[in-house]
Each structure stands twice: as C-alpha cells, then as structure tokens.
C-alpha cells in the first residue's frame, strides 16, 4: 500500500468536532489529523460517547465541523453540493426507518439515485452496477426477496450492496456489526475487507469489535479523550495505545495475543 498523495481519498486537518447550538459550543474532540488511502479498511475505535459517530457524521458531511477541514479527493467537503457529495461518500447506517416493503433489488437500486434522471429511471449502466454490487456481496439468491423476509445479517449485506451500487470512492458504516452474532460480525468485517481490496474503495466503520478490528483492518482510528490517532493495528499495539483505552479495573490489553482480557484475579 503506497501512501503517496494521489492515493489519499480523505484527509482531515486540525478538525474539531462537536455540536453547536444556542447554548454555545460543545466540543467533543479536536486536533484530528487523518489521512486515509484507497483500498484501506479502517475501523474507528473508542469508548461509548467518545464521538465515533460524530466523527463519522462530520466526515460524511451530515454534520458541520466546528473548525478545521475535511477534504475528499483533494476537494473541501463544504464546497461540494448535495449531489456531488452523494457521488463521493456512501453510508451504511443502523436503525433507519427503511420501508421493509422494498424488495432487495429495489433497495440496492436506490443507491443509483444520484445518477438517474428526474424520475429515477435506471439506465443500462445503472442496472450493471446494481448487478455487480449484488455479485460482490454474494446476495444473488436474495435479489427478489422483500426486506421483511431478511435476517439482520442478510439486511446488513443488502445495505452494504446498496452503498457499493452508489459507486463512491469512500464508504462509511456506523456500527455495522451491532445486533449480529459472532459469526456474522466476522462475516461482515471480512466482506468489507474483501470489498476494499477488490473495488479499491476506502471503507471506514465504527465498531466496538476491537479484537476483530485488530485482526482484519489495515488501520485503526483510535479515539482517546486527549487525542485521536490513526495507525496500523501493529504499531498501535507496540506503542501501547490500547492500554489506556478503557478504565483498568475490569479489562486489560494483552499485547501477546493482541486482544482484551477480563481480569480474573481475586
């Protein structure tokens, strides 16, 4: 993986994230400098409430940054209009009020909305991209099913296929592994890894599955109260960055196995 400038898909400089309303500014994290590249799978790790979702919302343009900049393929995120942004970043979200009456094909086809005409008619290219997304996520057998017939794991794959059909250099997923059993958690993360390599896309996801992320991801964005850093899992382990991720009373990080362990003494 070359880290030359051309391969940078997303870059943040001195980014400060948080909320702003009448009562003032509530900063959640600041001085975030990240550089991510093509075909990298990146997990965002941190304790509850540290601002993982806020970070993802900010870099996907849903939420305004308090200060600093986000650049997508060299262009400032704020300079993009709604439609331009839709062709740069696609999302996979949880707990959305999706119409379960949609068929799998219809749902994936909605990923083509930024490219279709004003009535949303699918062109031949659109259909090809949809079929390709279905093939990449191996959900050919589900194509004609309705969403209410799917299990959580199947629906997650369909939502990922929709993001692929949107054909953007960056895919952002907010906790794609919640509600899934251990097998499907691993399945989804492996699938994301495969997709990043095959499609050259940058895939960023927030997760609580630290052990899984350490084993599979190319890089990890680790969010601490003091600082947010990005590095390979290996470097983060050797620098001891995982040690003070959680309060030390219950769990500790075992550097030899690269996993968190529950303390069993006394």
């Amino acid at each position: 993986m070359k880290s030359n400038a051309e391969n940078i898909t997303l870059k943040t400089s001195n980014l400060e994230i948080g909320y702003q309303d009448k009562n003032g500014i509530k900063s959640i994290a600041e001085k975030i400098d990240l550089e991510v590249h093509k075909s990298e799978l990146i997990a965002v790790i941190g304790v509850n409430g540290i601002g993982k979702s806020t970070l993802l919302r900010t870099i996907s343009g849903i939420q305004q940054a308090l200060s600093g900049t986000v650049e997508i393929e060299g262009k400032t995120l704020n300079a993009l209009n709604d439609l331009q942004r839709a062709s740069q970043i696609s999302l996979v979200l949880t707990n959305q009020p999706i119409s379960k009456n949609l068929s799998v094909f219809e749902l994936i086809a909605l990923g083509r909305q930024p490219y279709t005409n004003w009535l949303g008619k699918l062109s031949k290219i659109d259909t090809e991209k949809i079929e390709n997304a279905i093939k990449l996520t191996s959900i050919e057998s589900l194509k004609d099913r309705k969403c209410y017939e799917l299990s959580d794991g199947q629906l997650q794959r369909v939502l990922i296929a929709r993001a692929i059909a949107q054909d953007t250099p960056i895919i952002i997923l907010d906790e794609p592994t919640t509600h899934l059993d251990m097998y499907h958690k691993a399945y989804v993360v492996k699938l994301l890894k495969k997709l990043a390599k095959q499609t050259n896309k940058t895939i960023i996801f927030a997760s609580h599955e630290i052990n899984l992320a350490i084993q599979i991801c190319d890089k990890i964005i680790l969010m601490h109260p003091e600082k947010t850093q990005i590095d390979t899992p290996k470097n983060l382990i050797s620098s001891g960055a995982f040690q003070d991720l959680f309060p030390k009373d219950l769990i500790h990080f075992d550097e030899i196995s690269g996993a968190f362990r529950i303390k069993n003494e006394d």
Binding site: R85, S99, Q113, G120
Partner: peptide, 18 residues
Amino acid sequence: IKNLNSLLLGEEYARSLG
C-alpha cells in the same frame, strides 16, 4: 417522485443520496 423514493430509506439515507 424521485426524492420520495429516496425517503423510503429514511431521511439520513435520503440526504446521503443527495
């Protein structure tokens, strides 16, 4: 019509679709 179809995924998705 087109925006209504996007809204079938909920507002957050619709926004991400432009």
